[in-house]
């Protein structure tokens, strides 16, 4: 029973973090209509920014959000403006050339990180690292709890942005119908760039709050990219609520699978569920399989 509760609680908390990763991806998918295979890599960039701030300047990772988020935001805007947007008009044999571009971008980011920081595993040591609450046998990691709360705040913030602001309305209009939106005077190009920036800023925030919990190394990027698209597809494409469910489902599948089945397969559970959903849930899929 305790084991069950422990799995459930860890699963839910991690799920909150995954939700943020999924939200960013979902947003980008909705507007750009591409799978962003540089997603986790941008998160990794943010993590290295925070790690450097901690390592060289002694800044607490929770504070360095103010560095990592803007940095990633502008980097992502730059990437989408100069590398992704120009491809929209280019005729290429494979329609997936934007996706392939994100692969190239991701590769460059990982290798740059490897070059600058080596492949070593990094982590930050803070006063709260490893701290946990003990609730009758079930322990709750404090940094994880904080990260979870921040995720909730970010989700709420994103909801507000999308639903209540002009920018949000433009984003939703562009996601629904790019042409119609541009006829209504929304600059689809600007919105695309901005969306890529915002989606990346979200994962940047997530990455920074992960830092006290997870190890950091260049290849953490691709790992989280995989998680991001699993979450997004699990939850249903382009849907904000879906990203949250997807995040929680993935995290629960991982923790319960690792606890009760086999921990070696931890990373496979999500992928298996992912494939099953992709193939056997045509309700949520119709829109995707016929793009």
């Amino acid at each position: 029973m305790e084991m069950f509760l422990q799995s459930l609680i860890s699963g839910l908390l991690v799920g909150g973090l995954y939700a943020i990763i999924g939200l960013g991806m979902s947003l980008i998918m909705g507007v750009l209509k591409i799978i962003n295979l540089a997603h986790g890599q941008l998160m990794m960039v943010a993590m290295y920014v925070s790690w450097s701030a901690w390592n060289y300047l002694g800044i607490d990772p929770y504070l360095s959000v103010v560095l990592s988020v803007p940095f990633t935001f502008y980097l992502a805007k730059f990437l989408s403006k100069y590398l992704l947007n120009p491809l929209i008009e280019k005729d290429s044999i494979l329609p997936e050339n934007q996706v392939l571009m994100t692969v190239g971008i991701g590769m460059v980011l990982v290798e740059l990180a490897r070059f600058l920081f080596t492949s070593d595993y990094r982590s930050v040591q803070t006063s709260y690292t490893g701290q946990a609450w003990d609730l009758g046998g079930v322990s709750i990691s404090i940094p994880l709890l904080i990260a979870f709360i921040v995720s909730l705040l970010l989700t709420a913030g994103l909801f507000y942005l999308l639903m209540k602001t002009d920018l949000g309305r433009s984003i939703r209009a562009t996601a629904q119908d790019r042409l119609a939106a541009s006829l209504m005077g929304v600059s689809a190009e600007k919105i695309t760039v901005l969306t890529y920036g915002i989606g990346s800023a979200l994962i940047a925030a997530a990455g920074t709050f992960f830092l006290p919990i997870f190890y950091l190394y260049p290849d953490v990027g691709p790992e989280f990219t995989a998680k991001a698209f699993v979450i997004t597809i699990l939850g249903g494409l382009g849907s904000t609520v879906g990203a949250i469910t997807g995040g929680i489902v993935l995290a629960l599948a991982e923790t319960f699978g690792a606890t009760y089945l086999s921990s070696g397969y931890r990373d496979a559970y999500g992928l298996v569920i992912f494939l099953l959903v992709l193939v056997f849930l045509p309700g949520g899929l119709k829109s995707l399989t016929k793009v």
Binding site: I35, L278, L285
Partner: peptide
């Protein structure tokens, strides 16, 4: 059963 980018992700996952 998947098209376009979803085919890509499906093969990747497999």
């Amino acid at each position: 059963r998947l098209r376009g980018p979803y085919f890509a992700l499906g093969t990747l996952a497999a």
